[in-house]
Amino acid sequence: MALFKGIIFDKTNADIGWMNNQSAFYSHGYRTAAEKLINEYDKLGMPEKDAIVFPVIFLYRHCLEIEMKDLIYRTDRCSGNTPSEITHHELLKVWDELDNKYSKLSEYIYPDYNFSPIEDRKEIRGIIKEFNEIDGQSFTFRYPRNKKGNGSIKSIDYISLNNFKIEINRVLNVIDNINETICHYEVHLEEVSSA
């Protein structure tokens, strides 16, 4: 088998063997791919413009899911709890669990290092809820038909990728801020344990 083989002196080799926390690279990869597709959108013809919406939204959704699950895992570790491995794909449930655990952890974080205030988190819950209502199990933008053989998307005729990008970036900015806060707290815990 040679499908996933690295080739010496091939400039397209992806060097993944060194990654300690692959979750961050998975989510970054999905996010980067979605952003690059959206940035190239204006250069595409009509059939491609209509078709590209499915992978773009799926890539963003998968990025969100991976990032939030990783943040839950890391929040658990920072709190001294056994890290949770979440196996379901419901974005709203994942978000609510992250928000709950982050809220508890943020009680111990110095306010100057809490980059995600509760107001921001409340604001994006509605966007995540809307996403979850359309794509609850991560199938809608991945498959044209659901498990019952029905069309995945029935109630939507048009999707503005510009609007989608604006709204999803609001969510991603809050998640990035949660990540930044947790990174600072992880460094703090390291410093305390090595002192």
Score class of each variant (00 low, 15 high):
2 A>T: 08
4 F>W: 04
4 F>P: 00
8 I>F: 04
8 I>Q: 14
12 T>W: 05
17 G>L: 05
17 G>H: 14
17 G>P: 07
18 W>A: 10
20 N>Y: 09
21 N>E: 15
21 N>I: 14
22 Q>L: 10
24 A>L: 14
25 F>C: 00
25 F>M: 01
26 Y>T: 10
27 S>P: 08
29 G>R: 09
30 Y>C: 12
30 Y>W: 14
30 Y>G: 08
30 Y>T: 10
30 Y>Q: 09
31 R>H: 13
36 K>Q: 15
36 K>I: 15
36 K>W: 12
37 L>A: 09
39 N>E: 14
40 E>K: 03
41 Y>P: 14
42 D>E: 09
42 D>C: 01
43 K>P: 05
45 G>F: 12
45 G>A: 02
46 M>E: 14
46 M>A: 03
46 M>F: 13
47 P>M: 04
47 P>L: 02
47 P>N: 07
48 E>R: 06
52 I>Y: 07
52 I>D: 08
53 V>L: 08
54 F>L: 07
54 F>C: 05
54 F>Q: 08
54 F>M: 05
56 V>N: 11
56 V>D: 09
57 I>K: 03
58 F>K: 05
59 L>Y: 15
60 Y>C: 11
62 H>Y: 12
67 E>Q: 13
69 K>H: 04
70 D>F: 06
70 D>T: 05
71 L>A: 04
72 I>M: 07
73 Y>R: 12
76 D>H: 03
77 R>S: 10
81 N>I: 00
84 S>R: 04
85 E>H: 08
85 E>R: 04
85 E>I: 15
85 E>V: 14
85 E>L: 12
87 T>F: 06
88 H>Q: 06
90 E>R: 00
93 K>R: 06
97 E>T: 13
99 D>R: 14
99 D>S: 13
100 N>E: 07
100 N>L: 05
101 K>V: 04
102 Y>R: 02
103 S>G: 11
104 K>V: 04
105 L>F: 00
108 Y>T: 04
109 I>L: 03
110 Y>I: 02
114 N>L: 01
116 S>V: 00
116 S>Y: 02
117 P>I: 06
117 P>W: 06
118 I>S: 10
122 K>Q: 13
124 I>A: 09
125 R>H: 11
128 I>S: 07
130 E>F: 11
135 D>T: 05
136 G>F: 10
137 Q>D: 13
137 Q>Y: 15
138 S>D: 03
139 F>K: 04
141 F>G: 05
142 R>S: 13
143 Y>T: 00
144 P>S: 11
146 N>L: 06
146 N>C: 09
146 N>Q: 12
148 K>F: 10
149 G>M: 08
150 N>D: 15
154 K>R: 14
155 S>R: 00
155 S>T: 09
155 S>D: 15
155 S>W: 13
161 L>H: 08
163 N>I: 14
166 I>F: 08
166 I>R: 15
167 E>P: 03
170 R>M: 15
171 V>M: 09
171 V>P: 11
172 L>P: 07
173 N>L: 10
173 N>F: 12
174 V>I: 12
178 I>K: 00
179 N>E: 08
180 E>Q: 06
181 T>F: 02
181 T>W: 04
182 I>K: 01
182 I>M: 08
185 Y>P: 01
192 V>G: 00
192 V>T: 03
193 S>P: 02
194 S>Y: 01
